[in-house]
Design a protein around this nucleic acid. Sequence first.
DNA 1: CTCCAGGGATGAT
DNA 2: ATCATCCATGGA
Length: 294
Amino acid sequence: MKLSRIRVADLDLEKTLNCGQVFHWEKHGRGFVGAIGDEAVYVEHRVETLKFFGASAQTIRNYFALDHSLGQICASFPNDASMIAAREFCRGLRIVRQPKWECLATFICSSMKQVAHIRQISHALRKRFGLRKEIADTNVWTFPSAEVLADATESELRNCALGYRARNLRATAGLIAGSDVHLEALSVFPDDELRARLCELPGVGAKVANCVMLFAYERLRAFPIDVWIERVLRTMYFPRGRKVTPRRLREFCDSYFGAHGGYAQQYLFHHARQTRLLGRHARGMVANGAARRA
DNA sequence: CTCCAGGGATGAT
DNA sequence: ATCATCCATGGA
């Protein structure tokens, strides 16, 4: 396995692959193995250098979004205490460009699941329905197509620990496979219409739609609000807020975090999770340092 | 054991 | 328009 190299500054591969935007990369040796589309890939980050095998430099650059200017993106964040801390902690974390179907399907499976279990579901679906590839003396599996999952029975999907999500995944796979919906074609729509179209799919609501927009359609303004982010918002941005409705939270996020709100969201999410801030063992211990309301 | 998780769909106020 | 419930499953 002869590794190719790309010069790259401003990348934290570990945070990028473990922050909860993508769920199938696994540590292997000094790097990670996974799949980019149907290609099995090994990647390893050294100082200022990304070493890789299994795909073209162009594919690697595109997937890891090495063209995103993190300097400009971070400069666009609001300068409150929470954002500054998250920005510092997540230095080098990039929002990658995921294949659309894979991202949509995975996030349909994500509802009411911890990140660790989403990884388990992703792996189970790949191993049961995907294609096995060998890389770096180990195996990885590609994500199964919508056609394959549409042909699976609900019972077969439930065997991948999907629970009640199996019905939604199968139904949405059917719409994609039957050409009722063309995920690539949705790229032409502006954010609001894209979100509305995605929300028409079974198992897709505002949160999942925003994840798919951010992680697969490169809509860097999309701001998914999940239970973690809601805790961050209520604690840091709306302390002593009594009647902060979901609608009010939504309006705040869309206006306050700016053009790269999705990046800001991912940084806040990963920072809160990794530092166990606001977790159920540390609730209420973050009274000071709260950001001033906008 | 209990509690909770990168929510969504449905039906009742 | 907001609110309550249910939905499977497994990690912590």
